[in-house]
Design a protein around this nucleic acid. Structure first.
Length: 348
DNA sequence: AACACCTCCAACCGCAGTAAT
DNA sequence: GATTACTGCGGTTGGAGGTGT
């Protein structure tokens, strides 16, 4: 892993360290201590820049470094510290003995961030995702005012990509043609969600937080059938979060494919490992609090777009990967899934 | 088996702060 | 006070390895 060996213009080596180089560095520091990184490589007989030596020592060779997987306690500590300190990785690392800032940063970007997004929590603000709430609010407002949803308005808000916009407009057209669909119910239920205070404790899982109404195996068809038979349960978040839930291992949503996620049926051993127990419990707790338990069979597992509340991009790349697919792909996937489901029950 | 795609993480880069001159 | 050197930090990169088709 890493980069191929290369040298810069000064003849200094770059890229992955060899065992021999590691040994030279360790031997030198054990004899002379670290510091004076500029002159260290020359004295130690290394063709590396001082910066590279310092990084190798602090991130890998230091004897007090704890390697291996992060424990649940460490993970929770990182989340709590990040909530207070933000991306101050070195400050976070200083409170986690044996862990380096680089290791924590990597773990945050590859694991925790995704986990929070799956829970509907903005990893930057540690608050519920505003883009989902805003979407719900806008649609709610549109319905209550009995006005046609203006697609360009939604797009101009930067909330949606075109696929997700299609989803919204299609469901709105359902509203126009389905008499059971009542804006009053929609409004009431969404305001409950929107007005509920941010529950910071959602990361702490109470022992009894897995209520029996959390149905892990509800299919999209079942959700939509329930919607059509009992429209009082309608809410945009209900639709979005149930139909775009993720029981799928990231790799299975590879580019160019349209795999069927496991929405129902017996769970395989492999799949049961995919869904982290603590995450499911957190989702259940989160759902219960965000919706006051008013919506049966609720799950909160969706991530639909880059959080609009994120003040700074977590990655400069224009493509954000979440759970193995780009967010654009996920939006498209969710939208397609919904259309298929609507088609299956004759709503479109 | 071959290919394509994705994840992970070690290592790099550039900037900012501080110390020394 | 200005300049230079050094160190620390956060963001980003890119390739090995894993997985799916």
């Amino acid at each position: 892993m890493g980069r191929p060996p290369s040298s810069d213009k000064n003849g200094l080596k770059k890229g992955p360290w060899t065992a021999e180089e590691d040994q030279k560095l360790v031997d030198y520091i054990q004899k002379h201590g670290h510091g004076r990184w500029r002159t260290l490589p020359k004295n130690a007989g290394l063709k590396r820049c001082g910066k590279s030596c310092r990084l190798r020592w602090t991130n890998y060779l230091r004897p007090d470094i704890k390697r291996g997987k992060f424990s649940l306690e460490e993970e929770e500590a990182i989340i709590q510290l990040h909530k207070v300190l933000g991306n101050k990785w070195s400050a976070i690392a200083s409170r986690l003995p044996g862990r380096t800032d680089n290791e924590i940063k990597n773990y945050w970007n590859t694991h925790i961030k995704k986990k929070l997004l799956r829970m509907g929590i903005d990893p930057v603000t540690h608050s519920p995702r505003l883009d989902l709430l805003e979407l719900s609010s806008i649609l709610s407002s549109s319905l209550c005012n009995s006005t046609q949803l203006n697609a360009s308005n939604l797009l101009s808000l930067g909330l949606l990509n075109p696929d997700l916009l299609n989803l919204a407009t299609t469901l709105l057209s359902c509203q126009n043609t389905t008499p059971q669909f009542t804006p009053q119910n929609f409004q009431q239920q969404n305001h409950q969600a929107l007005q509920y205070p941010i529950n910071q404790a959602c990361l702490k899982t109470p022992v009894d937080s897995n209520p029996p109404y959390v149905n892990e195996t509800q299919t999209p068809q079942a959700i939509l059938e329930q919607l059509s038979s009992n429209p009082t349960n309608f809410s945009w978040q209900y639709i979005l979060t149930n139909l775009c839930q993720e029981n799928v291992e990231p790799q299975s949503m590879s580019k160019g494919s349209n795999p069927a996620p496991n929405y129902g049926g017996p769970e395989t051993e492999n799949q049961s490992r995919i869904v982290e127990p603590s995450l499911n419990q957190n989702q259940a707790y989160f759902n219960n609090n965000m919706h006051g338990g008013s919506i049966a069979n609720m799950r909160f597992g969706s991530v639909l777009a880059t959080p609009s509340s994120s003040s700074t991009p977590l990655n400069s790349s224009s493509t954000n990967y979440v759970n193995g697919c780009t967010e654009d792909e996920r939006d498209s996937y969710c939208s397609n899934l919904l259309f298929d489901s609507l088609d299956a029950i004759g709503l479109v």
